[in-house]
């Protein structure tokens, strides 16, 4: 497998950093022969504003840690979509939170567009906070980058104990969502 670059993007408070963190950890610690690096945008604000996180995956040593030409772009806000779509590789895969993003002609460069109402799914479980994990389940089901077991393992380890159950439900719903 050659180098793969993923960018997750949305607004502050959606758990974009956690998405990258879980993905990176699942790959780095539990997917044999694969390395991963996670970096995230880091600004003075804690809530609101644009937020993004990158996961770079490779089999050998990863030299350059940041994502610049995305194989996968996962957008959970309109702003993020417009900001980052220019850096999606020609033929790359675009994951979209369909109720928060209206696509335009730029999306045509994507080889594949996968849409999910992640926030709505999350709200049905009880809180929009689970939207990121619903997206993660959806991403997992539609790519062959990371195993379901690895992701569930890190969710159990990294998410606060009292939120694990609902996050795993969100993950399942995302995973099973068919457009």
């Amino acid at each position: 497998m050659p180098r793969v670059e993923i960018r997750f993007a949305g607004f502050g408070g959606q758990g974009i950093g956690l998405l990258g963190r879980l993905m990176g950890e699942a790959i780095a610690l539990y997917m044999e022969e694969k390395n991963a690096i996670m970096t995230q945008s880091y600004g003075p604000e804690s809530r609101g504003g644009a937020s993004s996180s990158d996961v770079v995956i490779d089999e050998g040593e990863i030299a350059y840690p940041k994502a610049t030409h995305y194989d996968y772009l996962v957008v959970m806000s309109e702003e993020a979509y417009h900001k980052y779509i220019p850096n999606l590789k020609e033929g790359g895969t675009l994951f979209v939170e369909e109720n928060l993003v209206i696509l335009d002609d730029h999306a045509k460069k994507a080889g594949k567009i996968l849409k999910i109402p992640a926030t709505k799914i999350a709200e049905e479980i009880g809180s929009s906070l689970y939207a990121n994990i619903a997206m993660l389940g959806f991403f997992c089901a539609n790519t062959d980058i990371v195993s379901e077991d690895a992701l569930k393992k890190v969710i159990r380890e990294k998410v606060k104990a009292r939120f694990v159950k609902n996050n795993l439900i969100a993950f399942e719903k995302g995973k099973n969502y068919k457009g």
């Binding site: 963190r21 990176g24 780095a28 610690l29 390395n35 690096i37 996670m38 970096t39 880091y42 840690p65």
Partner: peptide
């Protein structure tokens, strides 16, 4: 540096 301080890897 900031990048190293904040990036995650194994």
């Amino acid at each position: 540096d900031e990048t190293l301080g904040h990036m995650s890897e194994k």
